[in-house]
């Protein structure tokens, strides 16, 4: 097994201060009588505006990494820094504030509130954010301007995921964390969603972290992080990023 190492930042990242800096992060779950080592000493820096794809098979620890980055979970050991905030050891209130102000989540199963319309699902987040977009505008960004008042049950899977993306970006987060955003979608719809993510990253400068087990998606990333058995196996930098429409799997 290759030890987890981080390649030196490439030219355009050199000299930049990382937005996220995580060091020696370990996460151990207890499942009944068994201890599960989800992460085993992970070091990683994330920089402003980059598009990162985290690749790994299921059970590799990528979701745990995402949850820790997003302040949904806390590591068993190690340090997590966001700018000059120390997230390790922060209490529930501090983590809640961190999520509220800086993080947007996109989940595999969209996790929309079924009793709220598309617009209201987005408003759910803009209402508690400091400088949010207009919810309708956020939905128009994901080409759902015509479906504002539809309930999740009246939307297709791809549409639901786009609502979820609109919900995640409407608060103008610093980082967009996407957990298998195309996992539940068919091929063309999945590509459509990835296009939206790419556009958000490009237009708003939001850090986008997409975790997936679909290696084809790696082509659109600036950096690709491969994870296996709780460790970072490899980090590669794409010299040429492929547009999502050109991806195929």
């Amino acid at each position: 097994m290759i030890p987890s190492t981080e390649l030196p930042p490439s030219a355009d990242l050199a000299g930049k201060e990382p937005v996220f800096h995580i060091h020696g992060v370990t996460k151990i779950y207890r499942m009944g009588d068994v201890e599960v080592h989800a992460l085993r000493g992970v070091d990683l820096d994330l920089y402003a505006g980059e598009f990162v794809v985290v690749l790994g098979p299921s059970g590799s620890g990528k979701s745990t990494l995402l949850n820790i980055l997003g302040g949904l979970d806390v590591p068993t050991a190690g340090e997590v820094h966001y700018l000059d905030h120390q997230l390790t050891g922060a209490g529930d209130a501090a983590l809640t504030r961190f999520r509220r102000e800086h993080v947007g989540f996109v989940f595999q199963f969209y996790n929309l509130i079924p009793s709220l319309t598309a617009l209201e699902n987005v408003a759910l987040v803009t209402e508690i954010a400091d400088h949010p977009m207009d919810p309708a505008e956020a939905l128009r960004m994901v080409d759902l301007g015509e479906r504002l008042h539809h309930f999740p049950s009246q939307l297709s899977g791809g549409e639901q995921q786009r609502v979820a993306i609109a919900r995640a970006v409407a608060k103008r987060p610093d980082i967009l964390l996407c957990d298998e955003p195309t996992g539940a979608l068919d091929y063309p719809t999945g590509k459509l969603v990835l296009e939206v993510l790419e556009r958000i990253n490009r237009e708003l400068g939001t850090i986008a972290v997409v975790i997936t087990h679909n290696a084809a998606i790696a082509g659109m990333a600036g950096r690709v992080i491969r994870v296996g058995s709780g460790r970072i196996v490899e980090i590669t930098r794409n010299e040429r990023r492929i547009s999502p429409s050109e991806l195929s799997w």
Partner: peptide, 16 residues
């Protein structure tokens, strides 16, 4: 429970 998780993920606090 998953809806509550989403609310929390987006920064809704304990009191909310």
């Amino acid at each position: 429970r998953s809806q509550i998780a989403v609310l929390k993920a987006f920064g809704y606090g304990r009191l909310d």
